[in-house]
Design a protein around this nucleic acid. Structure first.
Lengths: 222, 222
DNA sequence: CGCGTCTTTGAGAAACATCAACAGCGGTGG
DNA sequence: CCACCGCTGTTGATGTTTCTCAAAGACGCG
């Protein structure tokens, strides 16, 4: 179904000088369905998302899957361990990334500012993962879904007159694998939130947050 | 029940020059039940465990708790985010730690070797947390407990003639909060493993691994 | 328009949590 | 030294949540 990213899917763009990147760096465009790296790949570069959405996954031998994180603009993904990637990374949408050599993090040669910023990203990552732990280990299905929508709302919610809306580029199965649920449970929970008028669905991939406070309350456990 | 670590609980020891630490560093001794830091504390130092066991926890407003990790000798704990600790850290046993200023990680001034080693520890941490995700999100109760015992067996199992044994300095509630289960379920699962003769209990805190292969098979899902 | 994929909905089953009682163990004080 | 107390861990009975299996609906694509 999905294939590893062939060379022609990564094109060097003409855009330069993004964000905290002091030197001009090539920005790569990635097509939906393309993989930036696979578990076990030699880790040569880190990727800073500038547009679009990525998905990081780990898979067990028997096929069970855990979505580790979604990569949104500003996120940095691909932190290596022992020089290897330990997740798969697929683009869910058309995406753009700036890549940095792993050495920029590990040895920091040449660019102290970049080194610091990658390091801080790693520390943010640890912190974010700890939040996720609490969710996976201790929250109910509805709390998980509500938390998920809250985080996305804060992070990438778009103002839409009276309400905010969020687009969900990932499938229900991706959300389920992120939250440690099944697609059916995710679907049912979303239906419940809809019936309580906490959210509304513009379409399957677009959620309108009707009652952000109620959603937040649900996320934290009433 | 538990109190924050009072000054007299941290004593500068006479021991110096541990592990990857090129300069002599004071080693601190910590008494069981003492806290090295709390969630929200300003993060001034990182702690490298040299003996004993620590426990890192996060707590929700309503009291639900998640054990993020156990800190065993060799582990480095206390990675900050925005300059703050985001977990509590308690010593489960008498423990010793070497502390490093956060700046050794963040700016790396003065000691490149230490900087690198702390950075690598952070990357290992990210990797370990991703493994834990899979466990929390996608494994059954018995797989969780089996995985837990396997990891501990590899990490701190002591050879005991024919078999290996592991000591569990943490309570069943700690294990439950680490695995996202209840104490009752942890207890029942351990009883099952005992009845299948995969493990035996020397006492409540000491597990003897009778069939490591069977345990590993259970951990991965038969 | 038909087909495949993804999502939703329903009914039943399984896993785990909850509630409750009991057992084991260490510490304390008589 | 022993009896008692409190805490932790175990076991049992029951309940709830979530998963599983199944089928129908929605949506995009050729």
């Amino acid at each position: 179904m999905y294939v590893t990213i062939p060379a022609e899917h990564i094109e060097k763009s003409a855009q330069f000088g993004i964000a905290e990147c002091s030197n001009p760096k090539p920005e790569h465009r990635v097509k939906p369905g393309a993989y930036l790296f696979h578990e076990g790949d030699e880790a040569e570069r880190l990727y800073q998302v500038t547009s679009g959405t990525l998905r990081l996954t780990r898979i067990m031998e028997d096929g069970r899957r855990q979505v580790i994180a979604f990569g949104y603009p500003g996120d940095i993904v691909g932190f290596p361990n022992n020089g290897l990637h330990h997740t798969d990374c697929e683009a869910l949408t058309k995406a753009s990334v700036i890549s940095h050599p792993v050495a920029a993090l590990e040895t920091g040669k040449g660019n102290t500012k970049l080194h610091r910023s990658l390091l801080q990203a790693a520390l943010r990552e640890i912190s974010a993962m700890q939040d996720h732990f609490l969710m996976l280990g201790r929250k109910s299905a509805s709390e998980k879904v509500a938390s998920f929508l809250c985080v996305l709302n804060d992070r990438v919610g778009e103002n839409l007159g009276q309400f905010k809306q969020i687009s969900l580029p990932m499938s229900r199965a991706d959300i389920a694998d992120f939250l440690g649920l099944t697609t059916e449970t995710v679907s049912r929970t979303i239906t419940q939130l809809r019936k309580c008028n906490v959210i509304a669905l513009e379409n399957v991939q677009t959620v309108i947050i009707l009652k952000p406070d109620a959603l937040l309350a649900l996320a934290e456990g009433e």
